[in-house]
């Protein structure tokens, strides 16, 4: 195997084996340095406590309280706003349902605007959990709707279909999450643990209603515009790099209030309530109106319904 050249190199004291070792060591050191590089970006915004925080459902009540106080402190430091963050459990015997009357919706986007403010969305992107689609009359194909319209509404020949999270019972977004950072709660609301989400966006891709949003950057909101009534699984300000979604305003609805989008609707197109209560408004709508389930053929069993007069 040995050739004259090899012998010459050996004579210089550097064998091929030594060269390969040196190369390997260099590559190894480089890879290690690259792997440790995120430590350089370790800032005060990511505390050790936050890094080591357990999954929402594994937190003891005491640990949860510590997390909430820490998050409140973080909001004060980063946004200059004093907020209260609560951990609100689902109410026993309640299954939330939501219905929207397509016959009266005028597409005014007041719901999307209310969501933007209520849920502390980034001001620059005008983000909202609701996307109002302007649709051609005669078609229910949501992929052909447009959310970017900017003219007086309702426009002739159009109808308007606000789309938000449908809180599916067979939620594909929950199925695809590789770290179980999103799940369905007992009252039917699909929630996200923003501190557990790794930002892979599989859920965003899986959702046929385009209901999930990704925080491309840290949300920016002036301190005086921040809604101080917050909940852990709801409208607390999300960190950069995580996915968020409509949670039926659980920081309001789990205290008995109506969702912000419903209160903002000037036409009364929205009906919200407990599906288990036979005397609730939502049950009356489902039992007496012509109800339409968007993309029913997917078999996801949504908690959000459209109806017509």
């Amino acid at each position: 195997m040995s050739t004259p050249t090899d012998k010459k190199t050996e004579a210089n004291g550097v064998t091929r084996r030594t060269a390969v070792k040196a190369l390997g060591a260099t590559l190894g050191a480089a890879a290690f340095a690259k792997a440790m590089a995120p430590l350089k970006s370790w800032t005060s915004e990511l505390s050790v406590d936050e890094f080591l925080q357990k999954h929402y459902r594994e937190l003891t009540p005491e640990a949860m309280q510590e997390v909430l106080r820490r998050l409140e402190q973080n909001t004060l430091e980063q946004y200059g706003a004093e907020v209260t963050i609560e951990d609100l459990p689902p109410i026993e015997g309640v299954q939330f349902g939501y219905a929207l009357n397509l016959s009266v919706c005028t597409g005014c986007r007041k719901c999307a605007e209310a969501c933007h403010k209520e849920n502390n969305h980034d001001r620059a992107t005008n983000n909202s959990y609701i996307r109002v689609l302007e649709m051609e009359q005669g078609s229910m194909d949501m992929e052909r709707g447009t959310a970017a319209y900017d003219h007086a509404v309702p426009a002739p020949g159009k109808f308007y279909m606000p789309v938000q999270c449908h809180q599916c019972d067979n939620a594909p977004c929950v199925d695809v999450c590789p770290v179980q950072a999103t799940w369905k709660e007992k009252d039917g609301v699909v929630v996200v643990d923003y501190n557990w989400c790794i930002g892979c966006r599989y859920c965003e891709a899986a959702c046929p209603y385009h209901a999930r949003r990704f925080n491309w950057k840290k949300p920016e909101i002036p301190a005086e515009e921040i809604n101080p009534v917050q909940a852990y699984l709801a409208n607390r300000i999300r960190p950069k790099g995580v996915v968020e979604k409509c949670h039926f305003c659980l920081h309001r609805t789990r205290k008995g209030k109506l969702p912000a989008c419903l209160e903002a609707c000037p036409t009364g197109a929205r009906v919200f309530g407990n599906l288990l209560d036979p005397k609730s408004e939502i049950r009356w709508v489902l039992e007496n109106k012509r109800v339409y389930v968007l993309k029913e053929e997917l078999g996801l069993r949504p908690r959000f319904f459209y109806f017509f007069d």
Binding site: V104, T106, G107, C108, R109, K110, A112, E113, A124, T125, N126, N127, S128, R131, V132, L133, E143, R144, G145, T146, A147, A148, Y149, D150, H151, A152, V153, P154, H210, P266, T267, G268
Partner: peptide, 29 residues
């Protein structure tokens, strides 16, 4: 409160501003 009894049809209004997401600058969503 919502319907003027003399002309009860709900009036046309200018909507709240659209989302300024980079995906919304094109037609379709």
């Amino acid at each position: 409160a919502c319907h003027d009894p003399h002309q009860p049809a709900y009036p046309q209004v200018m909507p709240a501003p659209p989302p300024r997401d980079r995906f919304f600058n094109v037609k379709g969503h």
